[in-house]
Structure formats: structure tokens, C-alpha cells
């Protein structure tokens, strides 16, 4: 099967002005592909390059070497709105500067489909309503985003991304600020979107257990390079994770479901 997205030997170095961070960050020789309908989890320690991969995929940054191909077309040749019709991002929680309602927010996802128009068309509203129904926020349509709970806000952002009708949905830490209940809610929603509606998903997460639970394959990044890519059971390897994260990690199979459980191997008495 031809992949939906393919990165071929992609490298990236932040230009000088942004290199005020202690260590200059670079991404080197990253190659992987996402098949249509796949759910790929991207994991790795802080500053492994996860966010940079998202920025490269959405042309916020352009690779210094290699190329990114979306359905046969180089991403570099697409305009931002052409790209936004195919790739949607659910960002980490950043509240909008002004009090927009959920419906207004979700309608913003329709922009790339008619960037020259002043107002949305009736069909845009229909798509937005469908997206809100899919994530269960249709009753919240007239509510201002700030008045919602963390989980509701996350679902509203997800509805906005779905309103773009993307072929690839990218999620950046979708459960980072959510308590257990909302984590389960968002996880269930992602699984449904992927299994039932065939949405291809790239899930970036710190939560190895969640990523392993949802993903078909995992991609482990470390220091701007791919440490390993493959089925969760292959990537979640005790010695590999211990090396990558720089702390003792244990991986066990839970007794009930046989799921992989990753945790820090706390040493006793310290």
C-alpha cells in the first residue's frame, strides 16, 4: 500500500536566533511512513524532536535536508491552506486570545476549504455540526471556550480539527492536562475515529502506556533521531527505554489483559 505520508531522510537544524536554548537542537536522518488508516504513536523524552516533527509535517518549519511527501506530493510545494485541507493538528492547550464560542472555533476549521470567502457557507456549518456531534460537544456550541472543563475544551479542539476533514490528524499531547476520566474519554474517542471512521492519526504523547494502548506502531525518538520504530511490544523494551530516558524503566504485562505497563523502576529506600 502506498503510504499517506512519508519522511525521507529528513534533517532539521533551528536557525541561529532560536538557538538560545542551552543545547542546539537538531533532527537528523528521520525516515518513516504512515499508512492510510494507521494510528502511529510518537514517543520520546523531552526535546527528543516530537514537536519539531509536527512542525515539519505542517510546514511551519521546512526541513534542511530530505523531503516530506504527502500522498505523492512534496509538502514543500503545497500552500498552507492546501496542506490544511489534508493535515489537521490538535495543539497542546493554548486558549484563544479572545472569547470565541465552541461553534466559532469549530467553524475556523473550515477556513482552508474556502480561504477567499468572507463568511462560511451553509455546507461549512453542516460539516462543523457533524464534527461537534462526533466529539460530543454539540450542546456546548454557544459556550465560550474558557468556560469549559479541560476535557470539553480538548474535545472542542478535536472537533475543530475534524471540521478540516483531514486525511491525517495530528495530536500533540492530547491528554497532558486531563485527569484520568477525561484521558479515558479522549482515548476512546481517538480509537473510534481511527477504527470506525478510518482517520489516519499521528499521536504525540509523553504517556507511553496510552500511546502503546492506542497505537498500531510506536516511533521512539531520542535526541533528534529515531531510536526504534515498530509494534508497541518491540519498542517498549526495558533496556532500550532505560537507555533513552536515562533512568531505570520496567516493562511488565498486566495480569488481567496482558497489556504492557511501563513505569519507572523506583529503587527502594531513596
Amino acid at each position: 500500500m502506498t503510504p499517506l505520508v512519508e519522511l525521507r531522510g529528513v534533517g532539521f537544524v533551528y536557525p541561529a536566533p532560536e538557538r538560545r536554548q542551552a543545547r542546539p537542537f537538531r533532527l537528523a536522518d528521520v525516515s518513516f511512513a504512515i499508512a492510510p488508516g494507521e494510528l502511529l504513536g510518537v514517543v520520546g523524552p523531552n526535546s527528543a524532536g516530537k514537536t519539531t516533527v509536527i512542525r515539519l509535517l505542517t510546514k511551519v518549519l521546512e526541513p534542511t535536508t530530505g523531503e516530506i511527501v504527502l500522498d505523492g506530493q512534496p509538502v514543500g510545494c503545497l500552500t498552507h491552506w492546501e496542506l490544511a485541507r489534508q493535515v489537521a493538528v490538535v495543539p497542546q492547550e493554548v486558549p484563544p486570545a479572545f472569547p470565541f464560542t465552541v461553534e466559532q472555533l469549530v467553524l475556523m476549521g473550515r477556513y482552508p476549504h474556502a480561504p477567499g470567502r468572507f463568511f462560511e457557507r451553509p455546507e461549512d456549518l453542516a460539516v462543523a455540526r457533524e464534527a461537534m456531534a462526533a466529539t460530543g460537544v454539540q450542546e456546548l456550541a454557544p459556550c465560550v471556550l474558557e468556560s469549559l472543563s479541560g476535557g470539553e475544551r480538548q474535545r472542542a479542539m478535536l472537533a475543530r480539527a475534524l471540521a478540516q476533514q483531514p486525511r491525517l490528524l495530528i495530536l500533540d499531547e492530547p491528554t497532558a492536562h486531563l485527569d484520568l476520566r477525561y484521558q479515558a474519554e479522549v482515548a476512546g474517542l481517538l480509537r473510534r475515529l481511527n477504527r470506525e471512521q478510518g482517520v489516519t492519526i499521528l499521536l504525540v504523547s509523553h504517556d507511553l502506556n496510552l500511546a502503546a494502548e492506542l497505537s498500531d506502531r510506536l516511533l521512539l525518538l531520542a535526541g533528534g533521531r529515531i531510536a526504534r520504530v515498530g509494534p508497541p511490544a518491540q519498542v517498549l523494551d526495558e533496556s532500550l527505554l532505560t537507555a533513552v530516558y536515562g533512568c531505570p524503566v520496567s516493562v511488565e504485562r498486566s495480569r488481567g489483559h496482558g497489556r504492557l505497563v511501563v513505569q519507572v523502576a523506583w529503587s527502594e529506600g531513596r
Binding site: R55, H80, V94, Y111
Partner: peptide, 16 residues
């Protein structure tokens, strides 16, 4: 309106 989401999000939604 889209710029209210931040520059990166606006760019990812297709705004130059």
C-alpha cells in the same frame, strides 16, 4: 479570527 489561536495554529489552518 484565526490568528487569535496563535500564529502556529493559524498557519496550520492555512493562514499565511
Amino acid at each position: 479570527n484565526l490568528l487569535a489561536l496563535g500564529e502556529e495554529s493559524a498557519l496550520q489552518l492555512g493562514v499565511e
